[in-house]
Each structure stands twice: as structure tokens, then as C-alpha cells.
Design a protein around this nucleic acid. Structure first.
Lengths: 208, 208, 208, 208
DNA sequence: GATGAATGAGGCTTCATTCAT
DNA sequence: GATGAATGAAGCCTCATTCAT
């Protein structure tokens, strides 16, 4: 016997609306998306949306927080018990794998996050802050252990890495099929650049 | 005696409108910006805008193209006669210096460019393509000379570097004064990461 | 107990908007009429109009079709079981009686129909076509029975008769009160002209 | 040596603007016609139009008066020295011949005259009044001489005949090539209807 | 809780007209 | 007289949000 408490059904509907919003925002962008289209996609009445969310803005914010929370959870799980350098690799790979698995989510996080940076000045974005803290933490730890170069402030380095990931995600998400490159494989390129940079030093030849 | 040809006056007005639009878009974002406010800021009548631009969209597109062209010109001048590695450094430094000098322009290019990636699927964006070609060209040249690592496809590497620059520009532009970091100094961090990565290898110790 | 089904209420509102539009179009003409004024006259919000009609143009088109359908229904009922000559008389009388009863409708059909002949090239006008077919059919039947002169193509004759009716309706509708002539009585004049023309032949004297 | 007085050149330009307006009004209708397009068609600057006409409305009015004056002149010449019945025939034939020769003019007179009946309540239309007086005069004369049936008030009969002519002109003008009927030949049909009506009486058999 | 018809504020854009040159 | 760039008032329509059922 399947038991659905009222709370559970309610949660279901909330989730359905969020999922619908994600698809519609990905399809048209936040401003061009119509609340009524989201309602139709979710199979609820227009008014129902306002039982679960304060406004269209709130819907976007909630979507972010929701998804970023999932992303952060996945990232935390992936980096759990490693040394910083491996954590960095795991972080990068996990992030781009998620992009690959949920392109609509990626499109919203990637494009609309910018768009709503204006938003974000007002509405804060705790899960995105957490994302940066996570990444920055890895780097800071590596720097403290002496494994990573400490020239670059950890938070700035985190921003740079996020920038790479975000831009790769964006160009991959926006490119029509067949995709210009393999976003999962691209993880290795990011790892390579972040680890060793582009300069071709005779490191190996030096090693006897 | 100051001479103003008709063409000059016309150009003036067009430029004034573009400059006003840039400020207003930076202030409110494209969608929230009001054409009438742009007109007021430019000191012209609402209708005058439509003598120079087909629509509000066209105004945004033109603004991009205009600014990106200037950026590309500045970049081309800066990288002129150097070997690839120096070109890369010059490219990065010049880009971030421009961000520092023209924060409103940077805000529009940085935030609204995303926003209009949706746009861009339809309206093309030749100057941004040129930007990527420029950066990709430097890397490809370095790879061919054997000075840069060839593991990462040049165009993908270009995207990654642009991602870093863009994200730094964004977070700098959006942070209230006093700014969280010095965007001009950040150029060296980008150069460092792009050149050598974060790993702390015993490079120096290796050298006898 | 009064029962209003949802469908009925919806129809009511649609009808109220059409009626309001008719009055406002008659008052100011289509182009000078303001959608917001129609809304006020109908006692609905501006936006409500767009729940029932695609555009201001569509409102005019719908108004035509609606009214012409009523006119055609009334005409069909009036001419039902007569020989052609009587049908013709009934047609003419009924049409002008309707003009007398619904002057605002007549004004819109009469003036704006012209106005939108431009329209009509694109948007078709099935009920007006039906009107002409009805009138042309009566004449054709009379010609086939040998009761009406067959020199004039039936469809052209129909146009001519419509022209008379339309022009009489127009000049009557536009003339301030007291009206220059009695539009209901005018039916007999039209019947007389259509039947016998103006020439005063010694028909009666011929009859011994 | 051709001499053009200032007045002549001025007249030329005025005429060119009127001719251009006629073509553009016929092409798009009065409301959809743009003053700037008329100016381009006339080969003058937008502002120049306002040296010759007070407003766009005034341009339409002037166009009417101009054309109707020509029509009235042509009609007066055509009906000059005949008995009423022949005058009527000449009037009808001349009018429809003019429609055939100047379809753009006919379109404006025919469609826009209606459209601006609203106008006409305010701006009067002396030449159109003269047109009706001319036609009504012929009929009244015929009635007084006992040649035409006096049942129908002459001015109403004039309206009816104008209605026929106008409707034939309209449907002919609006029908795409090849035209549905020959507007010049249609004159005989109008004459036939106006003279004898449609009833097929044994007139001829009556004549011994 | 769910519905969806109704609301109404507000923006982009057009275009007749003006006026400095 | 002629020009045409500039003006700015004003309307159609959209769409987030509400609320009676």
C-alpha cells in the first residue's frame, strides 16, 4: 500500500512546478518564459503556482537554490576523503558530468545565473556562495599543505575555475547537436590546465 | 572655428545613444531598462532612438558589436609583434585593463552577453566570434611552435581562458566598492594559472 | 432560479464586448476607436478583450461576421417560400428595416465594411459573400423562370441592388435627426426602381 | 523658351503631391498611408507637403475636391445638351468610363470617401454635393417633363443611382486582374436597370 | 487546496508635424 | 521655398498576479 501524506503530495506538486519551470526557463530564458506556460507544462492551474511560490522571481530563486543544493551535495560526496589535488579533479569532473546529465538544469544555472546577477545583488544566493566556498576550501587546503601554489588567493582561483567550467558548460549547452566537443572529456582538459598550465616546460626531460 | 559636418553630428548622436544605453543597461539590465530612460539619458526624444536603431534589441546588439570591436582592436594592437606566450600575457592584461577602465561596458558585455546568448543563436555575434578566433589563434600558434601544450584543443582552451576573464570581470564589476580584489593585478594570476597551473612542482629545485 | 453555465457567462461577455465595439466603432470609426474605450463601454478590463479576440482587427472582423450572419438569417427567413419577385421585395424591405432597427450596426457594416475592403482582400468575408449569393440567387432564379430580365448577369445585378441599399443606409445613418427621409419607406422606392425602372412608359394607358 | 512663373512651378509641385497621395492612398488606404511615403513618391521632402497642405486630412480632402471637380466637369460636358433620359445615360456611361480610365482615383473616391464620411460630417464635401445635385437635377427635370417616374424623390433616386455606380466601381476596382466584369459595358446594365427595372413585362407585345 | 477568468499597469514603437538650416 | 532630422504624444497589447468559486 502506497501511502501519500498530504505533505508528500504537496511536495510532489512543488517539485513538478520546479521541474516544469526549469524546462521552460531553459527553453525561453527567464524573461521570455510565461508563468502560464510553466503551469501548463506542470499540469496545474496558473494560480496554483502562487500557492507554492511567492512570485515568478521566487520561482527562479528557488530553482537555483534547489539545483545548486543538489550540485553541492553531489560535489561534497565526490570529494569526500581525498587529498586536495584529487578533490580538485573530482570536483571538476563531477561538475561537468552533472552538466552532461542535466543539460536543462545547466542551461538555467549557466545563463540565468548571469542574467539574474542583478537579482542576486538583492536576493542573495546562499547555495552558490556555498559552491564557491567548497571550491575555494579545496584550494586553500592545498595551498596550506604546500601542494598548491599560494600566489593566487584561493577565492579568486575558485572564481577562475568556476569561470572555466561555466563557460565550457555554456558553450556546450548552446551548441546544437552534434556538440562541438565532449563535455565529459573536457574535464581532463580543465584538470590539465588547472594543474600544470599551458607552458611546455622541459619538466620531463629534466627528470633523469 | 569648429566645423561639424552633418555626418559628424549624426555620428555624435548615435554615439550618445549607445553610451546612454550602455549606462542604463548596466544599471538595470536589458529587460528592465526602459527605452524612454535611455532617451532621457542621451538627451534625445524617444523617437530619435528609432532613427538610428531598428529596435531595443538592435540597440543591444549594436552596443555589443561596437564594444567588442573596440576590445578586439585594442587586443590586436596589444599583441602585435610578440611570440605567443607574450601575446597571451598581453591579451589577458589588456582585457582586464579594459574592464577596469570601462566598468559599465564590462557589465553589459559580461552580463548581457549571457542573457543574449539566446539572442545570439539567432542574431550571430561576429565580433565575439572574432574575439575567440584571436585568442584561439594565439594558442594554436604557440602549440605549433611547441611552446604551448597541445593536449587541449586551442578553441577549447580559448573558451576556458575567456571563462576565467569573464568570471573575474563579472565578480569584480558586481562587487560594491571597495572592490574585493584588484582586477588589474588579477591579470598576473590569470597569466600564472594559464602558464603554470596550480600544482607546485619542484621546478626550481630541479634546476641545478 | 436563474442558471448561468460557464459557457453562458463567457458568451455574455463576448457579446457585451461585441456590442460595445459596435457602438464605439459607429461613434468614432474603426481607426479612431480606442480599445480601452471599448473595454470601458463593455464594463471589462482592457486585457479581457484579448481573451475573446486576437486583436482589434479581429474584433472588427468578428463584428462583421456576427452581424452579417444575423442579417443573412433574417433575410433567409423573410424570403423563405415566395416566388422570386416577392423574394426580392422581401429582401429589400427586410434589409432596410434592419438598418432602421439597428442604426449603429448599420453604420459599422456600411462605413467600416468599405474601410476594410482593404482588409477583406486578405481576411475574406464569408458572410458578406453569402449575402451576395443570396441576393444573386433570387435574381438568377427569377431570370430562369423568365420573370426577370436576363440581360444583366445576376451577380452584377445583386451588386447594383446592394449598392443602392448600402448608399441609402449610409446617407440615412449619417444624416442628423430629423432624418432626411424614411428608410423604411425607401424600401418601396428601391422595389419600384428595381422592378420597373424610372422610365415612364405608357404601360397603363396601353392597357385598355 | 519655356516660361515657368513661380506660381506655375508651385502648382506643379502641388499637383505632384496630390498625384502621389492618390497612388499611395489607393495602395494602402488613408490611415495606413504614410506622409513620408507620399513625399518620397512625389520626390519632395516630408516638410514640403506642409507648405501646400495644412495636414494629412487636408490632403485627402483636397484630393477629393480636386478629383470630384474633374469628374463633375467631365459629367457636365457629357450631359450638356440632351433630354433628361439621354443625360442620365451619358452621366452613367461617363462616370464608369472615368473609373475605367483612372482606377487609382476611383479607389480613393470609392473607398476613402466612405471611410471619411466621418470626416465629411465635419469637413463638408462641396464637390460631392454638387455631384448629387447634378444627378438629382437630371432626374428632377425628367420628372417635371413627365418622362421619368415621379414616385421616388429625385434626390433619393440620385443616391440610389450613385450607390449602384459606386458599388460597381468598388467591386471592379478591388477585383484582381482579370477583372470579373467589364466596367464600361456595365454602364448599359445600369442604364437598363434604371430605365426599365428588372421586371419582364410584355411591353413589346403590348406595342401593336 | 485548486482553478482559471479577469485584471490593469505599463512599455515599445509609430508617425504626423515642426523648425533650424 | 525646400529640406529632413528631430520630436513626443499616444495606443495596442502582454502577462504577472488575484480571487470568487
Amino acid at each position: 500500500m502506497t501511502v501519500h501524506s498530504a505533505a508528500e503530495r504537496t511536495t510532489d506538486k512543488r517539485e513538478r512546478i520546479l521541474a516544469a519551470a526549469e524546462r521552460i526557463f531553459a527553453r525561453h530564458g527567464f524573461f521570455a518564459a510565461r508563468v502560464s506556460e510553466i503551469a501548463k507544462e506542470a499540469g496545474v492551474a496558473d494560480g496554483t503556482i502562487y500557492l507554492y511560490f511567492k512570485s515568478k522571481d521566487d520561482l527562479l530563486i528557488s530553482l537555483f537554490e534547489n539545483r545548486m543544493k543538489q550540485v553541492n551535495d553531489a560535489l561534497r560526496a565526490a570529494i569526500a576523503p581525498c587529498p586536495p589535488h584529487d578533490q580538485l579533479r573530482a570536483f571538476i569532473r563531477t561538475y561537468l558530468r552533472l552538466v552532461h546529465e542535466e543539460p536543462a538544469a545547466a542551461e538555467v544555472l549557466t545563463i540565468e545565473l548571469r542574467q539574474s546577477s542583478k537579482f542576486m545583488k538583492e536576493y542573495e544566493n546562499p547555495e552558490f556562495a556555498e559552491f564557491l566556498r567548497l571550491l575555494g576550501g579545496i584550494i586553500a587546503a592545498g595551498q596550506q599543505r604546500g601542494e598548491l601554489d599560494a600566489t593566487i588567493p584561493a577565492q579568486v582561483a575558485a572564481r577562475m575555475i568556476f569561470g572555466m567550467l561555466d563557460e565550457l558548460a555554456l558553450s556546450w549547452v548552446l551548441s546544437r547537436k552534434p556538440k562541438k566537443f565532449d563535455i565529459v572529456r573536457a574535464a581532463d582538459w580543465v584538470v590539465a590546465l588547472v594543474s600544470s598550465g599551458l607552458d611546455r616546460r622541459s619538466t620531463k626531460e629534466m627528470t633523469p
